[in-house]
Design a protein around this nucleic acid. Structure first.
Lengths: 91, 91
DNA sequence: TGATATTAGGGTAATTCGGGAC
DNA sequence: CATGTCCGAATTACCCTAATAT
């Protein structure tokens, strides 16, 4: 039950994602990422969760590496399955 | 009645919140978190209260799976005796 | 008695918050 | 629709020295 992961500051998460801290705040506000608030109102994020998001947890597919001339148009191969049910926060 | 009345030092609380020990002291000075003072003037915090703050103060319930450890409310466990929804200073 | 690690206190910079607009 | 930047305000982080706790 130990969630024992480090907590990251908005600036840390922003640097990891290469986005603005404000954007990270928006994600948290939208419920797209879990956030813990300090008594002062500042947010802290779990490193485990951020890492999972960075790895592309729940979102993989759509790959067409250059050099993979795969015709990519398989007749019945439902390409690009836009799975939309794997979003943390499930929305 | 041991609901975990273990006392934590400012450094412990600071590590849990990923903040500076000084910040934890500031919370206590602002009355945002209960604090017990040693005869020497140092502060100690209750693990129960710190944990409640970490889990999310106000937005977590709806979870009482059968078999869950009795969250319970043993006597003398006053967790959250302090109102934490107040933001003096306006925010 | 000693020594070491942590904490308290004050002050100043950096970060984050919140909302609204482009 | 999502992202980045602007503002003012609050919160937090790091600097220091002295006192306390173990």
């Amino acid at each position: 039950m130990d969630t024992g992961d480090r907590l990251l500051t908005p600036g840390e998460v922003a640097a990891l994602f290469r986005v603005d801290p404000k954007t990270v705040t928006r994600w948290a506000a939208a419920g797209r990422i879990g956030s813990i608030r300090t008594p002062g109102g500042h947010r802290r994020f779990r490193e485990s969760e951020v890492r999972a998001l960075l790895e592309g947890e729940g979102e993989f597919d759509e790959d067409n590496p250059p050099g993979s001339p795969s015709p990519a148009s398989p007749p019945g191969a439902g390409a690009t399955p836009r799975a939309a049910g794997s979003r943390p926060g499930g929305y």
